[in-house]
Design a protein around this nucleic acid. Structure first.
Length: 318
DNA sequence: AATCGGAGCAACCGCGCATCA
DNA sequence: CTGATGCGCGGTTGCTCCGAT
């Protein structure tokens, strides 16, 4: 990719010893190579120094961002799995827009990616519903529609063969679902189920059953739940890039970076399909969402657009 | 075939915090 | 204690792709 001329800018650094034209915009293959090679030799950190010494005409910040969000070997590419989406929704309800904190619980996912997911998928639905993402109503939507649907999807997409090898990975969600009768289509009548609590207990169990801590996938971590999804990149050394010095390795690695494709998971667009909502939809959330207990959840996505149309026929077109 | 608009995402920006001399 | 510097976080921007018209 050829960088446009406009992608250069004067260095903003006050202590800049030379008037280096700093590059901006999309990173090129050569820049990525430089960055990877430098980090392979010197490790990450001290980004400003790295930016100066590596020969990259980028700011330290830019280098850091590129590395953390894209080049780092354990960065997972591809769509978020239902497990990951579920975890994001839950953790966001806990912590709000603490993206980096949320990202810590999703191995291989970056705060930027999670933030983008929230903004493009979740907030979009909130906009459609014309409700604030911070509102109680929207929280209810998430708890009563989205999370159960994700759990169902997780269970549905867990073939018995996979379960046999990953029983401990999929069980938690099945457990959660069973515990709250979600899989049978029943939503708790008195207050939506507490996903946070459930996941907390799962994490607790995980920590007790594993000597590893935060940096390793907990039982509730998506990575541990669906091993098959770990992108090919993970086949490459994840340590301090010990193999990156090997040109073939890092060229292949880079090639992988540049030819990423989705790894088979549909994004869960929060599309609530064909929910035949009985009763008054005027205030569905106060009804503890009992009206969504229908079996057609199993084979189709809920279409939030339809939901929206159903809810506010009088408002549409205005 | 051309144009337009929306979605998705990579990258940038500004601010605040931590560290260190 | 204070100022300088580096780093990380959350918000925002802008580019690219793709489907609709």
């Amino acid at each position: 990719m050829i960088a446009p001329m406009s992608s250069f800018s004067k260095s903003a650094s006050s202590s800049s010893d030379e008037d280096v034209e700093l590059r901006r915009g999309p990173w090129t293959f050569e820049e990525d190579s430089l960055l990877i090679r430098y980090i392979a030799c010197h490790g990450e950190g001290r980004w400003n120094l790295l930016a100066k010494r590596s020969g990259l005409r980028r700011t330290g910040k830019s280098c850091r961002l590129r590395w953390l969000n894209y080049l780092k070997p354990d960065v997972k590419r591809g769509n978020l799995t239902p497990q990951e989406q579920l975890l994001i929704l839950d953790l966001h309800s806990k912590w709000g827009n603490r993206w980096s904190k949320i990202a810590q619980h999703l191995p291989g996912r970056t705060d930027n990616e999670i933030k983008n997911y929230w903004r493009t998928r979740v907030q979009k639905q909130a906009r459609h519903l014309k409700i604030d993402t911070n509102s109680t109503a929207f929280q209810e939507v998430i708890r009563c529609f989205w999370m159960p649907r994700l759990i169902q999807k997780i269970q549905g997409s867990s073939p018995s063969s996979a379960i046999s090898s990953q029983t401990s990975n999929t069980q938690p969600f099945i457990h959660i679902a069973n515990e709250h009768s979600l899989l049978s289509g029943q939503v708790p009548a008195q207050g939506p189920f507490n996903m946070t609590e459930s996941l907390d207990s799962l994490e607790y169990q995980a920590k007790n059953s594993s000597s590893e801590h935060c940096t390793s996938p907990s039982i509730s971590s998506p990575e541990s739940m669906n091993i098959s999804q770990i992108p090919q990149i993970s086949e490459y050394p994840t340590g301090p890039f010990h193999a990156m010095a090997n040109t073939d390795h890092y060229n292949t690695y880079l090639k992988n970076c540049y030819n990423v494709d989705n790894i088979g998971y549909d994004t869960e667009p929060f599309s609530l399909t064909s929910v035949s909502a009985p009763g008054d939809f005027g205030n569905p959330f106060s009804e503890s969402c009992n009206w969504i207990d229908h079996n057609d959840l199993a084979d189709s996505l809920w279409n939030m657009d339809e939901l929206w149309q159903f809810r506010q026929p009088q408002e549409r077109g205005t």
